[in-house]
Amino acid sequence: MFQIVERKQLNEAVVMVKIHAPLIAKKVMPGQFIIFRLDEFGERVPLTVADYDREGGTITLIFQIVGNTTRQFSQLKAGDSILDLVGPLGVPTKLPEGTKSVCVIGGGVGCAIAYPQAKHLHELGIQVDTIVGFRNKDIVILEEEFRACSDNLILCTDDGSYGMHGFVTNALQEQLEQGKKYDVVIAIGPVPMMKFVCKTTEPYQIQTIVSLNPVMVDGTGMCGGCRVTVGGKIRYACVDGPDFDGHQVDFDELMRRNGTYREQESHVCNLKKGVR
C-alpha cells in the first residue's frame, strides 16, 4: 500500500497528490512515469511523475479527472492509500550535450509534466523559457512554480481571459520570429498540441522532444499496446520512451490508437457514476 501524504485540488478538474514511495522517489528522473492501481478492481494507469522529493521519500502526481479511475483517485484524501504503484518506468529525458537554452511548452494538464522538466533544467543552469497554455483563466495551474524556474514565462489562454490570447503555438511562433534561439524545445500536452508545436519548430530545425502517453498495460514492454510509429519504425513508449523526437512521430496514428477503448471507458464511467 502507498499512502497519500498530501492532496490538493489545482483546478476543478485537476488534482495533485503526494505519495509516500521512497524507493521510487530515490531513483525517478524527469520524463519517467509510474503505473498505479487504486484497488483490487482497478485498472493499471500510467502517469508521468510531476515532481519528487528524494529526502522526504515522496513523489508527486498531477492528473486530470477524465474517467472513472481518475475520478475515484480524486476522491481520496491525505492519509488514504492506493494499492499498487510501480516505477520509475521509461527512460529519463535526454538532452543533447552542450544544451544551453530550452523552451519548455506545456498544454493544460500536460503542464504537470512540463514543470519538472523546467525545474530540472533550471537547476542545471540551463536557460529556460516556458510557454504554458490553458483553455481559460479558471484552469491555470502551477503558475508560481513555473515562474520560479523560468527565465521567461509566457502564459496563454485560448479565450484570452488571462495572459496572452492564443495557443502555445502562436506564442512559440512569435518567439522564433523575433529571433529567439533554442537548442531544444520540449512539448508536453494534448496530442494535437504536440503535433502543432512540432510543425512550428520544423522549419527552424529545432530538436523537439515530446512526451507520449499512449494506451498501456504493464509498462515494461510486454503488451505492445503503447507502440507508436517513430521515423517509420515501431517503438514502445514504455521502454523506448515516453520521450521521442517529435518530428518523427506519427501523431495521427497515435490519436486514433488512443481512442481504442474510448467507448468502453465512457460506458463504465457512466455506469458507475449512476451507482455512486
Binding site: G42, E43, C223, R227
Partner: peptide, 27 residues
C-alpha cells in the same frame, strides 16, 4: 497500427491478470 490490432500478450493480460472478463473490474 490500426485500432483493433493487438498482441496476444496484451489481449490475454487484460483478460487474465486484469480480469477483463469480469464486469466488476475496470480494465
Amino acid at each position: 497500427a490500426l485500432v483493433g490490432v493487438c498482441s496476444a500478450n496484451e489481449y490475454l493480460t487484460r483478460i487474465n491478470l486484469m480480469h477483463g472478463y469480469d464486469e466488476n473490474y475496470a480494465t
